[in-house]
Design a protein around this nucleic acid. Structure first.
Length: 421
RNA sequence: GUGAGCGUAGCCCAGUGGUUAAGGCGCCAGGUUGUGGCCCUGGAGAUCGUGGGUUCAAAUCCCACCGUUCACCCCA
């Protein structure tokens, strides 16, 4: 027997209500804030990701799904959402539109990791990106939008962590100070952090090991090394957030795992009893990325959330989602001739936009009604010998069991009335 | 990549060495020879993850492999 590959899963019909719910909220929210949908391919030049996200990150070093096509072209399954959006922005000259350009996407991303709760090899991300403005008001708007997104889903048990990690000018100085601080403790560092110290020093800060945490606590803070411009930007972001009534926590250890971030970084994490400390979503500014990918210097800011984790939290917080629509009618029939009549009727109803399901096989009426019930049909239409003779049908309301015989010609109007009733 | 737990019908699971592997959900059928949901009755459905070993005897004990879950790591 074949199985879905490790870390992937089928989303069965019974589960789809959650997905449709989230997708609906996404579309509404993005419309509200002026973001337009963008779909990008499921695979890209693998260099797009290695260049954008950069080495030293786990994503690029050990989690990418890369492969060669038949001509030896090096490709990678979409590892994250931002780089492809930037690529599309450049490729299609979207910098010619009024700036900032606001785009959103929703789709799968792939990472080779060992699966566990809320972590998969194929997961789905929703994200939005505002490209072409350095205005701190936009950072605040993005954060507010992220918050509104969670609220609109019904989620409230989360907190917003905020930090600024500076720019090309000030970050190197900070990194130097950080390395200097850590160099006093080299012997006490965990093996991972010894590597980080050289390859990706910022990530030293969020090591979870107790021994490393102690060192991180006394480490210099990014905010104390910001250049005047970054300092002003960060202050302004906080001022706007205050004006918007957004509560957030400054977290000096928040650095994010992808290297393209500059200045503002933020993360949404659930604050529930459980141990689960995986981020629900995160984002920040990436003012150098477009330039890195071959464009003109173009500031940008964005956010992404994982759909599976959202749904996990919807379930944990017992948030009910609307169920998928059920058919308006089920057509039951008895006898060969009635079955032909049923097929004609089903076709006519569908032509009028009424969702119907026909009985198949030749089950007993009891079995057919059982099926109508299981399908959640609002009405069952019954056609038997007697109805064939009278040119009528029986219309049974499954909600209360009331039924009546009506002329076949009146069925469409009857059902349309019933739908609004 | 590291560590731990778990693999018995579509799903949840009982069963810790000895007759035909139990139950619940779901499915199918009957109880009304043309009427669902509740109830009652019956039925179908299991190479007990795979391979090897111990034993007179293994779902049960041992080993390996595979799968899966959770945690670390990392992130969505």
């Amino acid at each position: 027997m074949y199985k879905a590959p490790r870390g992937t899963f089928d989303i069965l019909p019974q589960e789809q209500a959650y997905w449709k719910y989230v997708e609906g909220k996404v579309a509404f929210l993005c419309q509200l804030y002026g973001y337009q949908p963008l779909s990008t391919p499921i695979f890209e030049d693998s260099e797009l990701f290695t260049h954008a996200v950069a080495g030293g990150t786990d994503l690029v070093d050990k989690e990418m799904y890369t492969f060669e096509d038949r001509k030896g072209q090096k490709l990678a399954l979409r590892a994250e959402g931002t780089a492809p959006v930037c690529r599309a922005y450049l490729e299609h000259g979207l910098f010619n539109l009024a700036q900032p350009v606001k785009l959103y996407y929703i789709g799968p991303a792939f990472r080779y990791e060992r699966p566990q709760a809320g972590r998969y090899r194929q997961h789905h991300q929703f994200g939005f990106e505002a490209i072409g403005s350095a205005d701190p008001a936009l950072d605040a708007e993005v954060i507010e939008m992220a918050q509104r997104f969670f609220f609109s889903l019904g989620l409230s048990q989360f907190s917003i962590n905020l930090n600024s990690i500076g720019c090309k000018l000030c970050q190197p100085k900070y990194v130097e100070a950080l390395q200097e601080h850590y160099s006093d403790y080299t012997e006490q560092l965990c093996p991972d952090c010894k590597v980080r110290l050289v390859r990706n020093p910022l990530r030293l800060l969020d090591c979870k090991k107790a021994s490393c945490q102690k060192i991180a606590e006394t480490a210099p803070k990014t905010v104390n090394y910001l250049c005047p411009e970054c300092q002003a930007h960060f202050q302004s972001v906080q001022k706007y957030l205050g004006a918007l009534g957004i509560t957030f926590q400054l977290n000096h250890r928040l650095v994010r795992g992808l290297d393209y971030y500059t200045r503002t970084v933020f993360e949404i994490e659930p604050q529930e009893e459980g141990t689960q400390q995986s981020a629900l979503g995160g984002g920040g500014r990436y003012d150098n990325l477009i330039e890195e990918l071959g464009g003109k210097p173009t500031p940008a800011v964005g956010f992404a959330a994982g759909i599976e984790r959202l749904i996990l939290n919807l379930k944990r917080q017992k948030i009910a989602v609307p169920s998928l629509p059920t058919p308006a009618a089920f057509i039951a029939c008895l006898g060969e001739e009635a079955k032909i009549e049923a097929a004609k009727l089903a076709s006519a109803l569908r032509k009028n936009g009424i969702a119907v399901i026909e009985a198949t096989g030749d089950k007993s009426l009891k079995a057919q009604l059982r099926q109508a019930n299981a399908l959640g049909a609002i009405y069952t239409i019954i056609i038997g010998k007697q109805e064939m003779e009278n040119r009528t049908i029986i219309l049974r309301d499954m909600r209360n069991g009331e039924q009546k015989a009506i002329p076949q010609t009146e069925i469409i109007t009857a059902l349309k009335q019933g739908e609004t009733a």
